[in-house]
Design a protein around this nucleic acid. Structure first.
Length: 616
RNA sequence: GGGGCCGUAGCUCAAUUGGUUAGAGCGUCGGACUGUCGAUCCGAAGGUUGUGAGUUCGAGUCUCAUCGGCCUCGCCA
């Protein structure tokens, strides 16, 4: 076999005159009868090979038989291309390799889709023949970027004295959180491991162990329905540190983010990254992961609306609801029917019962509200609204009247949709923000109890310790004033362009405080012992104050590569229904395997698993 | 579990109101061709319209079911 001396993206003008050997895939061939050209591709690029029947008849003849995606090696002379024949689209376009010897290393069937037009190809086919899809330069760029990010991460944490430590994949099922993937135990009948939703408890225990600074690039599993930016199997950059407060973790994290964006995209991230409180985020943007590339803040107009004659508004306010809205700059381009069909049905998807609107127009040298719900407002009220939103001629005001949480739920995505439609931001730009001061709990109406907003191991701020319910009178040495709804946590999320890329917190390191949180979450003592006993016990043996954070690697790489689809940044992703189209997992198993695991399935029909796209 | 969009040649798409033998580009195969780079020119092959029922004289088109893909609500401590 000819051993390559260079890759296909490497040769330049300066290399002219060198004898080289290249190897790769036939990207395309152009057979002129006389000359044959082959664009040879590997992950580094394309190089043109030229075969001349006059000088190398043997190689030329063989080249005529070659087809796309065959694997070949070619030995020849690097030469300048004839004048006027350079290809400015290729980095190697100044030169070509005049082949003297050609070896066919392997033939290939005709690929199921053309490499060049794969961008438009049905994803189902791309996933079924993933090995072809991954040959595409765009996909290789994403694989490479992902690799580069993990290398920056490892290098960064190593320099700061962090240790990368692996934690078990076969772990214990936890009652809270997402649905677990279960793995039956062969040695213990009726017992199961769970694949980790995150290494949360292990990393905290590593702090108890004195590891001090831990990180891990780790696979996590949550058995919930996928989305465009979510897979059941995903990767976290998991971090935990001892003897730290929020600012320490935030500092380490934002410097990492800055380094990643600098190294990968040469983008400077201004550090420290600004912070806003959860309360502010919810009030101004209706979500705890606001997209700050554009302004268009939400405003509560309840005070003005309750004096209107609009029944929808007044009755909602009487029932403890609010009227909240936003001002879409130049939103007049939405017609009445756009608003009443498209936008109204958009917010309806998020549970809004309606969408009130009004356009802002200049009349007699004065801004006023026009059409829609304008007629329900007095001229004075209209002026108040215009001032509140700082509305201008041609703007569109949109309102949702509902309970505060419901209004936010509809308005936050509406705000993003409008910004997208109206092109209010630069797609290439990144806007970072820390969201801090989350409440520790939120009331769950379904379950009639409090729920952790972050997770149950998040610590309250010192000042709010005494708002936890009493447990034998103990409240961190202070008197108790139970007020769970108003406990502020030491949690923090970093949000980029409306996407949460990391979240973390300072943890509870006092077993008594931890126990009280479990109590409040209505986790019984028995249950807590059974599920978290090992952890509570560990906290009892000198747990240092500690905290950490976890980054979503997949989403980070999506941002860095400008991808909207998480499957594009995962080499072998699953479909929306959790299938791997390449391998046909999940598949049925032999009865023998089930017997060994002491498992009996409810349906015994053992039809052979269906191959989706068998190649001939 | 709910909602939406989609499924026609290997790939991307077309096919009038339900009406003749389902078309095109790319790819594939064969041939031609002195420098191409999305080569060009000539020719050919390639289809159970995802699957199954139904309505109809007649279904790619309408109805129902089903399978699959994507988006989304719920869900995702």
């Amino acid at each position: 076999m000819l051993k390559r001396t260079h890759n296909c993206g490497q040769l330049r003008l300066d290399d002219a005159g060198k004898k080289v050997i290249l190897a790769g895939w036939v990207h395309s061939y152009r057979d002129h009868g006389n000359l044959v050209f082959i664009d040879l591709r590997d992950r580094e690029g394309l190089t043109q090979l030229v075969f001349d029947p006059e000088t190398q008849p043997q190689a030329h003849e063989l080249a005529g038989t070659v087809r796309c995606e065959w694997v070949i090696a070619a030995k020849g002379l690097v030469q300048l291309r004839t004048e006027g024949m350079e290809n400015p689209k290729l980095p190697t376009g100044q030169i070509e390799v005049a082949v003297e010897e050609l070896q066919i290393l392997n033939v290939s069937k005709t690929p199921p889709f053309e490499i060049d037009s794969a961008e438009k190809t049905n994803e189902e086919i791309r996933l079924t023949s993933r090995y072809i899809d991954l040959r595409r330069p765009e996909m290789q760029h994403k694989l490479r970027t992902r690799h580069q990010v993990t290398m920056v991460v490892r290098d960064y944490f190593d320099q700061l004295g962090f240790w990368e430590i692996e934690t078990p994949m076969l772990a214990k099922s936890t009652p809270e959180g997402a649905r677990d993937f279960l793995v039956p135990s062969r040695l213990y009948k009726n017992r199961f491991y769970a694949l980790p939703q995150s290494p949360q408890l292990f990393k905290q225990i590593l702090m108890v162990s004195g590891v001090d600074k831990y990180f891990q690039i780790v696979r996590c599993f949550r058995d919930e329905d996928p989305r465009a930016d979510r897979q059941a199997e995903f990767t976290q950059i998991d971090v935990e540190m001892s003897f730290v407060d929020s600012n320490d973790v935030i500092g380490v994290s934002e410097n990492l983010v800055a380094r990643i964006f600098k190294r990968i995209l040469d983008v400077d991230v201004a550090v420290p990254i600004r912070r806003i409180s959860y309360k502010e985020a919810m009030a101004d943007y209706g979500t705890d992961r606001p997209d700050l590339r554009f302004d268009m803040k939400l405003k509560d107009v309840s005070d003005i609306a309750k004096q209107s004659s609009f029944k929808v508004f007044t009755s909602v306010i009487e029932n403890a609801g609010i009227v909240k809205g936003l001002c879409a700059p130049n939103g007049e381009k939405y017609s009445r029917s756009d608003i009443e069909k498209t936008l109204t049905s958009f917010v309806a998807d998020y549970g809004a019962k309606g969408l009130a609107w009004s356009k802002v127009k200049t009349e007699n040298d004065k801004l006023s509200l026009l059409s829609g719900c304008a007629k329900f407002f007095s001229p004075e009220a209209q002026q108040q609204i215009i001032e509140l939103f700082e509305a201008k001629d041609g703007d569109l005001l949109l309102f949702v009247a509902d309970k505060e949480a419901a209004a936010n739920k509809a308005l936050a995505p509406l705000r993003c949709k409008l910004a997208r439609d109206l092109k209010l931001y630069d797609k290439e730009h990144f806007e970072f923000v820390w969201v801090v001061d989350f409440p520790l709990f939120e009331w769950s109406e379904d379950q009639k109890r409090y729920d952790s907003l972050h997770h149950p191991f998040t610590s309250p701020i010192e000042e709010d310790m005494d708002k936890l319910p009493a447990e034998g009178g103990f409240a961190g040495g202070r008197r108790c004033r139970p007020d769970p709804a108003n406990i502020c946590s030491q949690a923090y999320d970093i949000v980029v362009n409306g996407s949460e890329i990391a979240g973390g917190s300072i943890r509870i390191h006092n077993p008594k405080v931890q126990q009280k949180v479990f109590d409040l979450l209505n986790i019984s003592r028995d249950q807590a012992q059974q599920q978290f006993g090992f952890f509570l016990k560990a906290l009892g043996y000198g747990a240092p104050p500690h905290g950490g954070i976890a980054f979503g690697l997949d989403r980070l790489v999506m941002l860095l590569t400008g991808t909207e689809n998480i499957r594009d940044v995962i080499a072998f992703p699953k479909t929306q229904r959790g299938q791997c189209l390449l391998t046909d997992a999940p598949s049925e198993v032999d009865q023998k395997q089930l017997d060994e695991l002491n498992l009996r399935t409810q349906r015994h029909s053992h039809k052979p698993s269906q191959k989706t796209n068998e190649q001939k």
